[in-house]
Design a protein around this nucleic acid. Sequence first.
DNA 1: CAGTGTGAAGTTGTTCACAGCA
DNA 2: TGCTGTGAACAACTTCACACTG
Lengths: 212, 212
Amino acid sequence: MSQEKSVPVPVLRRMPSYLSFVKTLQKQGEKYVSSTRIAEYMGIDSTQVTKDLSHTGITGKTRVGYEVDDFVRILEEFLGFSRTDSAFLVGAGSLGSALLQDKGLSAFGLCIEAAFDVDKAKVGTRVNDIEICHIDQFRAMAAERHVVIGIITVPAEHAQNVADLMVAWGIRAIWNFTPARIKVPSHIVVQNTTIYTNLAILFNKLYHPDHS
Amino acid sequence: MSQEKSVPVPVLRRMPSYLSFVKTLQKQGEKYVSSTRIAEYMGIDSTQVTKDLSHTGITGKTRVGYEVDDFVRILEEFLGFSRTDSAFLVGAGSLGSALLQDKGLSAFGLCIEAAFDVDKAKVGTRVNDIEICHIDQFRAMAAERHVVIGIITVPAEHAQNVADLMVAWGIRAIWNFTPARIKVPSHIVVQNTTIYTNLAILFNKLYHPDHS
DNA sequence: CAGTGTGAAGTTGTTCACAGCA
DNA sequence: TGCTGTGAACAACTTCACACTG
């Protein structure tokens, strides 16, 4: 059942939490984990967990569950966290700096090689040992390094310009943290991530509660 | 059609982008926007846009579209961005600091009143004019201010402790930025936001492309 | 016509029911 | 009995089709 057809996005959204949970069990020295237990932790149905896991090809022992070490290894592999991809980040503002400082990203297979900004005051400084360069250097630096992912953390109104620059150089995927939607050729992978959407969902649950 | 029943989450995810787009049109002085145009910008079906908007109760003129000013006002109201809620943030690490520095949050109706941390070195300092206090002060400060939302940006292994503290005080909603799932009473609203899930989705699109 | 608005059809994702196993 | 794994029933979301309007 190793995945051939595309994995539903809702499934991919849940998997990192499964992994996070099982990793804590691993640290506590546990050997096995059942879908029932993961489901309880997540507050969802246990069959959903097994269905989700079937996409990864992991196979569990009946009556005991999944082996914790296998689980971690297979999920990290499946989610792409075990390989390491290089990335460039454009926009070293507060969010950009936070990403540069975040130790977690490298653990999840993303290595930010360099950052770019237009602000001359920032150029030349380092954040978490990552050099901040002027945006004009982007093309030259991109050409000499093997980088597949571009991260956009500039203000929304400049997102398209930055995206165009990345596409022109030949990046394969863009992680866009602005609320603006960018237009790129169809072979480029785009992932939009905006925390404000989560704020909207939170407000909705808080102020328009459904009758359940 | 002003909304009575619960709004689907996928709809809420799209709306902030609609709003962002129409606001840029507003700045450019445009008077009307059609669902077709929004759909084109988003890369989705135009009927989906009109269906989504029907939840808000906004009404458009046939043949011309929606009035831009109305659109912005109604969507901000609907998404809860026009009112302002107070929040406390716990965990002034890199992500926490980025949120404290983010000017966008106040524009979207969230005012972070104070931040908390265990690190004595940070206590007493200010980020973006927001005071960082020791976590032991949380109860006392929470009691004297009217705060409904708690933001968790601590390492995953402490998320549950912080959540318990917030619940004990009487917070109504928790915005959890850790990959850990927290257990809280059912009347508490929880919104989980982890950027790593987006990374997993991006990797999947990049390395397990579907056949479309 | 180019647009809104909506019920019906189609698709996708979730939950149920049960077979199989140790 | 407690758990995996899967086909079938169900619910949620999206797309289609079309009535309507200036």
